[in-house]
């Protein structure tokens, strides 16, 4: 109380310094967030504005009222030649690809990882190397022969041909192997003493224990499958098999099309192709981040 001047003067500079650096941090973060958001905002704006206006003036500052209309057109009117690739049909195919891929990958990966980690297997080392070599070469580098083989097997324009070749890499297997190895040894021992065989142990104990991991994997794999582009582009030539992401190419052509390009409709399709994976990632953020960052240890 006696020494008012010093008690005020001393903390002031520190307080101010901290505040400035904090404001700087926020400024950078806001700039970064805007950098990320800007393209989406432009997409939304043009999707809600009449095409003619966009063509004349480009994206404006205000959202328009055409979103409903464009949405209806995008979802239910076909944009291709055969009339089969409405937004709705592409959405369906995208869902099948995303869910089918995630499901297949997880089931197959868990089974293989279980065999590798929990059994005395004579060919364990060989199996391990055969499986994990696949981590080295992405599909893109063997895309043409994969296409040829899929064609030979008569799988062009089928869901099997779309999904199964994408599963031919061991990311999920590797992930579950890592996780199973981190499960305490004593758990399987206790279970064996409790009279649980391999199938029972898997169903009663290992699968429930892996729940979070399965969820995390599912999100990552769903997004990965949904976002596939090159493979679907090659394997699906019939419009009723197009996924949203594969359809982007056609959307581009619409955009470049005749008299008045149908920006609104095209952009609605682009937005629809983004919403499900983004929603999944945002809603299940903590699982997703955990799965992503733990898969590579």
């Amino acid at each position: 109380m006696a020494d008012i001047t010093s008690s005020v003067a001393v903390p002031a500079p520190t307080r101010r310094r901290i505040r400035w650096s904090l404001i700087g941090d926020h400024a950078i973060l806001i700039a970064g967030s805007l950098f990320m958001l800007l393209p989406l905002l432009v997409l939304l704006q043009t999707a809600s504005t009449p095409d003619l206006e966009t063509m004349k003036n480009g994206p404006g500052l205000y959202f328009g009222d055409q979103l409903d209309d464009n949405f209806r057109k995008a979802m239910f009117e076909a944009s291709g030649f055969s009339g089969a690739n409405t937004g709705l049909s592409m959405l369906k195919n995208s869902l099948i690809l995303g869910l089918g891929f995630a499901f297949g990958k997880i089931v197959i990966g868990m089974m293989a990882a279980y065999a590798i980690v929990y059994f005395r297997l004579r060919f364990a080392t060989l199996a391990f190397w055969l499986i994990f070599t696949t981590l080295l070469l992405p599909l893109e580098v063997r895309i043409l022969p994969s296409y040829e083989i899929t064609q030979k097997l008569g799988l062009l324009n089928t869901y099997t041909g779309l999904i199964v070749p994408l599963i031919a890499s061991a990311t999920a297997t590797f992930f579950f192997r890592q996780f199973f190895r981190s499960v305490p040894e004593e758990l399987v021992e206790a279970a064996r003493i409790d009279g649980a065989g391999p199938v029972k142990f898997f169903i009663d104990i290992l699968v429930p224990l892996s729940q979070t991991m399965i969820a995390a994997m599912f999100i990552i794999m769903f997004v990965y499958g949904w976002n596939q582009y090159l493979w679907p582009t090659m394997i699906t030539t019939e419009e009723d098999m197009y996924t949203l992401v594969r359809g982007i190419k056609q959307i581009v052509q619409v955009l470049e099309g005749n008299e008045i390009p149908q920006y609104g409709r095209a952009n609605v399709l682009a937005i629809i192709s983004v919403i499900p994976p983004v929603a999944v990632v945002i809603f299940f953020q903590s699982w997703f981040v955990k799965g992503l960052t733990e898969s590579d240890k």
Binding site: G109, A112, L137, R142, I149, A168, T173
Partner: peptide, 9 residues
Amino acid sequence: QLTIIAVFF
């Protein structure tokens, strides 16, 4: 797993 990677990898 092995079948798929044999055929498609």
